[in-house]
Write a protein that binds this DNA or RNA. Structure first.
Lengths: 129, 129
DNA sequence: GTGTCTCATCGGTGATATGCGATGAATACC
DNA sequence: GGTATTCATCGCATATCACCGATGAGACAC
């Protein structure tokens, strides 16, 4: 039974900086972590741009709620707003989206590569640490 | 005047079901939408499995808080818990993670393909920024 | 000017998230 | 038996989210 005692009395190795490195990706995930916002992004991808009213009509939500979701996406940099007359046309920020996609991909690849690395020699690794 | 009036007086075309299709991916994004949880997932990828104490030592958070984050990830299906003695070993749910990665990839590809479809005609708009 | 349309923002409400310390159950060790 | 360790859970405080209706600003039509 003494075989798998965890060395848990160590000092904290990952402090605020450790978390900070995750913050950018986490912010993207958080912004996309709501069905309505995902739906908005998808809609904008499919029709290039849309005014707020159009987006509202595609969602079972009040205009004010949709406007707030749009604000969240805008704050995250995922879309931009182009005011024209009394309409406000929203469009995706391709640059930011590509960057987000890149971050996301990198994350998954990171997971996969680490998984591949250690699942081959998994058991040995745990006691060496 | 009539140039860019939005046809916004339409009925709502995307009701609850429309949102429902986004819910699965949104749930994954939401679970990963916190720096601490991202850090936990990364850590588990790098060392295959870890007990709660180890994870706590890698984060600038109290044990109870980390335990809650672990619960969130567990609820999302991203990791599993394997109780051994008084230790509880957490490990990533590879299957779910691959599924999540797939969903995520599909999402980005969907965006890109739609973007490619309609942005052929719209380059002028984007470079103004 | 008035009226209408579009949209952001305000204020309020209820739910959820985030964090902590305290506590208790289960296990391991003596 | 007693004690220590590990971890989940409870209780609480605070912050943020999600949603709505109401309101107001700006643009347009007349």
């Amino acid at each position: 039974m003494s075989e798998t005692e965890c060395p848990s009395a160590k000092a904290c190795t990952q402090s605020r900086e450790g978390l900070a490195s995750c913050e950018e990706l986490a912010a993207i995930f958080r912004a996309l972590g709501h069905p309505a916002r995902l739906a908005i992004v998808k809609q904008l991808a499919s029709q290039e741009e849309a005014c707020c009213g159009e987006i509202v009509n595609h969602l079972p939500l009040a205009q004010s709620t949709v406007s707030q979701h749009l604000q969240v996406l805008k704050d995250a940099g995922l879309l931009t707003c182009d005011a024209r007359g009394r309409n406000c046309h929203y469009l995706l920020n391709r640059e930011k989206l590509q960057q987000a996609e890149h971050c996301s991909k990198e994350f998954w690849e990171h997971l996969n590569s680490l998984a591949a690395t250690c699942s081959g020699a998994s058991v040995a690794a745990s006691d060496s640490d």
